[in-house]
């Protein structure tokens, strides 16, 4: 391609050199400021940020307690562990642990999806699946703990 005809004939394709077009595709005449403002401000994000920190702080003692308890159990067979789980405070802390972990994980995975999935349909679907998955994990975890706690030692 010659210099002059090269720029004309391939102008229809977005290329690194075409500034705004490289981002938006050709034919987008929205002003740069309009693009920067976009859909404006969602008026949220504070709760997400704050609860992510809160759940992280809650997880520190809960995770340490869980690890120490597991290590100090005399054995890890079914009867020992379920007897330990059935103790009142153990069940309470385990439920708190499962709920904080699921909540914290949901907040984090949500951000990962928002970071990397850009197609809006795929993103909505992925976020819905992420939410469902964490709810299922949390409910199943709590149910299992309660079953052991109230079902009596098997």
């Amino acid at each position: 391609m010659t210099k002059s005809s090269g720029s004309m004939s391939s102008a229809a394709q977005p290329r690194p050199g075409r500034g705004g077009e490289a981002r938006q595709g050709p034919g987008n005449l929205r002003s740069p400021l309009g693009r920067a403002i976009g859909a404006g401000c969602a008026k949220q994000g504070v709760q997400h940020w704050w609860t992510q920190r809160l759940s992280a702080v809650a997880l520190v003692p809960l995770a340490i307690w869980f690890a120490v308890s597991m290590l100090s159990l005399p054995s890890h067979d079914y009867s020992t562990v379920s007897a330990w789980m059935a103790q009142g405070w153990t069940s309470v802390f385990l439920i708190l642990f499962v709920l904080s972990a699921a909540w914290h994980s949901q907040l984090g995975v949500r951000v990962v999806v928002e970071d990397y999935v850009h197609d809006s349909g795929t993103k909505s679907l992925a976020l819905a699946l992420v939410t469902f998955f964490h709810v299922v994990v949390a409910v199943a975890g709590v149910f299992a703990i309660l079953k052991v706690a109230f079902g009596g030692a098997a």
Binding site: P16, R18, G19, G20, A22, R23, S31, P32, R35, A36
Partner: peptide, 18 residues
């Protein structure tokens, strides 16, 4: 986006500043 060689297109960057 690159305009040429070491010259990047900062239009969007400046618009965000504005």
């Amino acid at each position: 986006p690159v305009v040429k060689d070491l010259v990047p297109d900062l239009t969007h960057f400046y618009a965000q500043y504005a």
